[in-house]
Design a protein around this nucleic acid. Structure first.
Length: 570
RNA sequence: UGGGGCGUCGCCAAGCGGUAAGGCACGGGUCUUUGGAACCCGCACUCGAAGGUUCGAAUCCUUCCGCCCCAGCCA
């Protein structure tokens, strides 16, 4: 038996450990991630990807990427491509094991013939509606199809003619012969093959009959020598059928299906259907809108693969339905980006500051640390001059208690620069709006060369007016309002247009256009995370072309905002 | 009211008969030229409820309660 048995950390690994101890698969561990190419991958899929590939890695096994492409009417090559890109981006490698269920159509057909020969499958002429009636209900058993006792020869002939295209779509199906009285609806002679004329993205028009998931999946797993076939909870009822297919065909070393609870995240949606609705109704810009929980959306938002993997590790794997707090995901990116993101200064809502005691026309190059968490990141030069911009929020004319920032007569440190004092406030006479601040600076207080020994409570970020670059910054917030009932997530009943709309957070996107950012950001590249000092992590929007547009990945934790909640006095 | 699952801190989640891990969130503190980060402290006498078995139960048994899934020729 190969390898060490790692300490168990979830019920799936417990099962694998026990299989390993019993030498059940000769010490092999082989999993697969089996997406249907009918939509874009989201963070919920990431949980499954990390689980399957993670187990393979941990146990020195293998994990395949297999497309479950048995329904050509819903699937498309576009999705295949995006899924491949996303799994790669997440950091996983299936080597040469990229498979498609459609690769097995011929073998699947042969197995179906065997089932018929064993008297375990039959061609049924019941219509869709009739089949539903015959199926019975949750509390009443079903009735056997009048076609159930056709001879093997007749079934063989009919099935061959189904394949040959002799019958119209939906005219007949191949059914398993199991038990119409089973309390498990899935065992009431389920359909194995249906007639469907749709051009398949891989097999074209070679087939007009397509296998059902319940039939194709166990056999695909078997053909790939999968040992542990991990899927979500709703398939628990299907396991007896999964086993029936393999047992009835007398296949040995059968894979074991294990079910876990899919991921739900607070303040967002996870169903492909609802996400599609958001895209199609124009509530978001597309599948990769940075507010979407899709992997492409998270990528554009600035989430790193490392942070998503870490998140998936932290949330664990179990069988109880649960809703993970979005704060958990946000924590994971912050932790990753804090270590790696280069710091820059960027003023989102500029307020002009003139340092009156600073010489006209003088420009000083100051030293700024690129990342205090990583000395290797080095230092850079930033220009300081007489006219600067600071954040509007960093000045208050009548400050509340514990406001450590600038206000008339008060002093603050400008990060990497000097301590300044607010001498005068220039306002618009008509509106009272603060237009500009007149300040003085203390030359003795230059960062790294402070001989004044003075201490101030606040440190502000700033940017030199003449040197800064204009930019657009997009601030994102949760897709759904705090109050949104996440529970109705998977409800198949289409909520009225208004209902979905009501759940949306109207402030999920705020575009700031007059921002002034540090000149070094001109070199920003897509896919790289940056910290804008005191504000959060941002990344260049790759879709914005030549414009300098930054997406906020996640804000920094903000204790001031917490104690100064709106609606609370000072 | 048939079948299959699940119920451990506000949110995740370990625990597998020997006396409740960890993370997030939250609260307090230290430090700080990011109100960031880091660090320290606090945060379930109790495991859906009630009985029972046992020297001993979140873990075993019984009953009850709550929630999720299943009646596609979707996956």
């Amino acid at each position: 038996m190969a390898g060490i048995i790692p300490s168990p950390s979830n019920f799936i690994e417990n099962i694998i450990n026990s299989d390993l101890e019993n030498n059940k698969y000769g010490g092999r561990v082989h999993t697969r991630f089996p997406p249907e190419p009918n939509g874009y991958l989201h963070i919920g899929h990431a949980k499954s990807i990390c689980l399957n590939f993670g187990i393979a890695r941990k146990y020195n096994g293998l994990c395949n990427l297999r497309f479950d492409d048995t329904n050509p009417s819903k699937e498309d090559i576009e999705y295949v491509e995006s899924i491949i890109e996303d799994v790669k981006w997440l950091g996983f490698d299936w080597e040469d094991r990229l498979y498609f269920a459609s690769d097995y159509f011929e073998q699947l057909y042969d197995y179906a013939v065997q089932l018929i020969q064993k008297g375990k499958a039959f061609v049924c002429d019941l219509s869709n509606e009739e089949m539903r009636e015959y199926r019975g209900t949750l509390t009443e058993p079903g009735r056997e199809s009048p076609y159930r006792d056709r001879s093997v020869e007749e079934n063989l002939d009919l099935f061959a003619r189904m394949r040959a295209g002799e019958f119209p779509d939906g005219f007949r199906v191949l059914r398993a012969k199991i038990d119409m009285g089973s309390p498990n609806m899935n065992m009431r002679d389920p359909a194995l093959y249906r007639i469907l004329r749709a051009t398949h993205h891989r097999t074209g028009d070679a087939w007009c009959i397509y296998p059902m998931y319940d039939y194709a999946h166990p056999l695909s797993d078997y053909l790939e020598n999968i040992t542990h076939s991990i899927c979500t909870l709703e398939f628990e009822d299907h396991r007896p059928l999964y086993d029936w297919v393999l047992e009835t065909l007398e296949l040995e070393e059968r894979p074991l299906q294990i079910e876990f609870a899919r991921l739900n995240l607070s303040q967002t949606l996870m169903s492909k259907r609802k996400l599609r609705e958001l895209v199609e109704q124009g509530f978001v810009d597309g599948w990769d809108d940075p507010r979407m929980p899709t992997l492409s959306g998270l990528r554009r938002r600035g989430y790193t693969p490392e942070s998503i993997r870490d998140f998936c590790d932290r949330i664990g794997v179990a069988k109880s339905n649960s809703v993970v707090d979005m704060a958990q995901l946000e924590h994971a990116v912050r932790e990753d980006l804090n270590r790696r993101a280069q710091r820059f200064m960027a003023v989102l809502r500029p307020l002009k500051v003139v340092i009156e005691s600073y010489p006209q026309g003088q420009v000083e190059e100051l030293d700024a640390e690129n990342n205090p968490e990583n000395p290797q990141a080095g230092w850079r030069k930033i220009p300081f001059s007489r006219e600067l911009y600071i954040e509007q929020d960093d000045f208050m004319e009548s400050p509340p208690k514990k406001f450590f920032r600038l206000s008339p007569g008060r002093e603050v440190r400008l990060k990497h620069a000097y301590i300044i004092k607010c001498e005068e406030v220039i306002k618009d006479d008509a509106t009272g709006e603060v237009l500009e601040l007149r300040c003085s600076y203390d030359p003795q207080t230059r960062s790294g060369a402070d001989t004044s020994g003075r201490k101030v409570k606040g440190t502000l970020h700033w940017v030199s007016a003449a040197h800064a670059l204009p930019a657009e910054v997009r601030l994102y917030d949760h897709l759904l309002k705090e109050s949104a009932p996440q529970e109705i997530e998977e409800d198949e009943d289409l909520p009225g247009r208004g209902e979905l709309k009501q759940m949306l957070n109207p402030r999920s996107l705020e575009k700031l256009t007059g921002c002034q950012v540090e000149a070094g950001l001109k070199e920003a590249v897509p896919g790289q995370g940056y910290q804008f000092l005191r504000q959060g992590y941002f990344c260049l929007d790759a879709a914005a072309g030549d414009q300098l547009v930054f997406n906020r990945t996640v804000p920094l934790r903000d204790t001031w905002a917490k104690i100064h909640k709106p609606g609370r006095p000072g």
